[in-house]
Amino acid sequence: MIPRTDADELTEQPRIPLSRRRVLRAAVRLADRDGLDSLTMRRLAQEVGVEAMSLYHHVANKDAVFDGLVEVVLGEIMAAVEEVEAPSPDEDWQGALRARILAAREVLLRHRWAPRVLETRASTSPIFIAHVDHIVALLRAGGFSYELAHRALHVLGSRALGFTQELFQPDDAQSTDAAAAAMMEQMAEQFPNLVGMLADAVHDDPDGTLGFCDDQFEFEFALDLILEGLERRRTAGS
């Protein structure tokens, strides 16, 4: 047996104990790198370097992992929203809310799979409820009645978290340009107006998207329309 030396002890890396936080962070990393569909318990176990059975001490099943993903992403959103530089809502509620929503969107641009998970789980999360409470507080500081704040939440919808659910979205929102062109060619005769509009709207999006026709310009354009309309209602007292 070769005796251990002081150098061996110095270079040996301590084993990081498995925890729920470590498992969820690995799940986020795996989804970021390989997509949400790659996230299985077996792949997740490989990501953290353990047997799959070891995961069940920290997450009960895949649904629990997805709940945890929402927890992690919403936590990042809350941190981003709290740290963003924004005007005081009692002086400029539109600027304050706009800055916070765009900060939330920046988080989702790092985790492009997140909208798929948030759409099914966010509303039951205490962190999501806290996020909505902050938005209501901001609107109230900006002069909104509770009634108009309620309506504003309905109008904002998923934009409050930095993404939109589009009216028209192909089954594969990440389809290639060739596939999109083929789809439009097939639809052209039956739906000429829609295809003409989509063909006109095709453009390069170097920053990527969070969904079909949800690039940064379109997102901000729609958000500004909403904020301007709400301001008109606020000043009209309705």
Rank of each mutant, 00 (worst) to 15 (best):
H154V: 14
V50G: 02
D37V: 15
V136L: 11
A60L: 04
D177K: 12
A27N: 06
E147T: 07
L138T: 09
A31L: 08
G162R: 03
K62G: 12
A130Q: 07
V107P: 02
S125E: 02
Y56T: 12
G211W: 14
D32F: 01
Q169F: 04
R110S: 11
V84R: 01
V48H: 01
F212D: 00
R232D: 12
D224S: 14
R21C: 07
T176Q: 01
R29Y: 04
L108K: 06
L109T: 10
Q174F: 12
Q190C: 09
A31I: 05
L139I: 03
V132D: 09
P14E: 11
L227S: 08
E166S: 15
H150R: 08
R151Y: 11
A86W: 01
L148S: 04
D204P: 06
I2C: 01
R151E: 15
S123K: 11
T40P: 03
A114I: 04
W93K: 00
R33I: 07
E189M: 13
L118P: 02
G75C: 02
M78E: 08
L97E: 01
E228A: 14
M41C: 03
A236Q: 11
G143I: 01
M41K: 03
L156D: 05
A181T: 13
R22D: 06
G49Y: 00
F66G: 00
L24A: 05
H203V: 13
V132S: 13
T5Q: 03
V132G: 11
R29V: 06
M78S: 14
E91D: 13
L138M: 10
D92R: 02
R151V: 05
D215K: 00
H134S: 13
D204V: 03
L153M: 12
H58L: 01
V50P: 02
F219N: 08
L198H: 06
D171P: 11
A152T: 04
R42C: 05
T11N: 09
A182L: 06
S175H: 02
N193R: 11
D215V: 00
E83A: 15
R151N: 14
V155A: 10
R112H: 02
F212H: 15
Q46C: 04
F212G: 00
L223G: 03
E185D: 15
M78G: 05
D204L: 06
D34T: 10
P89A: 02
R234S: 10
V132M: 15
W93P: 00
T5R: 05
G95F: 00
D63M: 12
L109S: 13
L30F: 07
A152P: 02
A179E: 13
R22I: 07
A201E: 07
L153T: 03
R98S: 14
V81Y: 00
W93G: 00
H154P: 00
R43M: 11
V195M: 05
A45K: 04
H150P: 01
D37W: 13
R100E: 05
G237M: 04
D32K: 11
D8F: 06
W113N: 03
P3T: 08
S88Y: 08
D171C: 00
A180L: 15
A60W: 06
H203Y: 07
V50K: 07
E147S: 10
V107C: 06
M184D: 12
D204A: 13
E119V: 12
A64E: 10
G75K: 01
E185A: 15
Q46E: 12
D133L: 08
S123R: 15
D92Y: 01
S145H: 02
